[in-house]
């Protein structure tokens, strides 16, 4: 009994020290200026639509030794890809690990099309990925509940709460404990991943969620894992779980 209440007390204290997941949950767009919000809302103003159009063209273009397009197998993305982006990252049997939507697309590219790999952060990959993600716009984030995906998310949660880098800060210290506050000129968002890939005005380009995570890591002067590293996939899986139920906003615009 004693031990039980001690454990409960520690739980309460830990909660008090580390804060909790943000409530109510707000999308990153809620922290932006009205003009950037308008740019995201209006497809005719949203620069990401250029990449999405490019993605649609790639979807229909034959490629690789197999001489097949994505459409050859999947047909119209509007129906076949509906809801798909909302449930990535996901554990993949063949790969034996959790993979991102981009990695899933590249598996089809290399395996099914027998075409050269799509480079991380390349316009082609970001275009295909955002074209696929577009088909889930407005749908709730729905990370799979299978043990493999959940295990990845749990590893991601541990990374999320761990202090790293020369500045010794965890993701949670900024995004759970200090969201809404100003880090110099930038408002710290809650760190939800429901709008990626995004068009970022600072980059003048489209970028993936992993690019964003790598920036946060180099910001605290921590080691920055390579694109596709399992640590980044695990963090993505945790972020998806943390944002479950939030509507997918792809293609997001960020300052």
């Amino acid at each position: 009994m004693r031990r039980l209440s001690a454990a409960a007390l520690i739980g309460v204290l830990a909660g008090a020290v580390h804060g909790a997941e943000p409530s109510p949950r707000k999308s990153g767009a809620d922290f932006m200026s009205p003009s950037t919000q308008a740019m995201q809302r209006d497809d005719t103003q949203n620069p990401a639509m250029l990449w999405i159009q490019g993605g649609e063209a790639l979807w229909n273009a034959k490629a690789g030794k197999a001489d097949r397009s994505c459409a050859s197998c999947h047909g119209d993305a509007r129906t076949s890809m509906r809801g798909v982006a909302a449930r990535y990252p996901a554990f993949d049997r063949a790969a034996g690990k959790a993979i991102t939507l981009g990695q899933r697309i590249d598996m089809c590219r290399q395996g099914a099309q027998q075409a050269p790999a799509l480079k991380p952060e390349s316009d082609d990959l970001l275009s295909l990925e955002s074209h696929v993600a577009m088909q889930s716009r407005g749908m709730p984030m729905a990370p799979p509940r299978d043990p493999g995906t959940r295990a990845a998310a749990e590893r991601g949660r541990q990374l999320y709460t761990r202090r790293i880098g020369q500045l010794n800060l965890s993701c949670a210290q900024c995004h759970d404990d200090n969201w809404g506050r100003k880090l110099a000129g930038a408002t710290i968002p809650q760190g939800h991943a429901n709008a990626y890939p995004i068009y970022r005005l600072e980059w003048q380009a489209m970028g993936s969620l992993q690019r964003r995570l790598r920036n946060c890591m180099s910001g605290v002067r921590a080691e920055v894992p390579a694109f596709g590293a399992q640590e980044l996939v695990d963090l993505e899986a945790y972020l998806a779980l943390r944002a479950h139920g939030m509507p997918l906003e792809t293609p997001g615009v960020r300052p």
Binding site: G165, Q166, N168, A222
Partner: peptide, 15 residues
């Protein structure tokens, strides 16, 4: 959350 400016131990994954 304030970093320690003159300390190198106890840090993880420093770039």
């Amino acid at each position: 959350i304030m970093p320690s400016y003159y300390k190198t131990d106890g840090l993880e994954k420093v770039g």
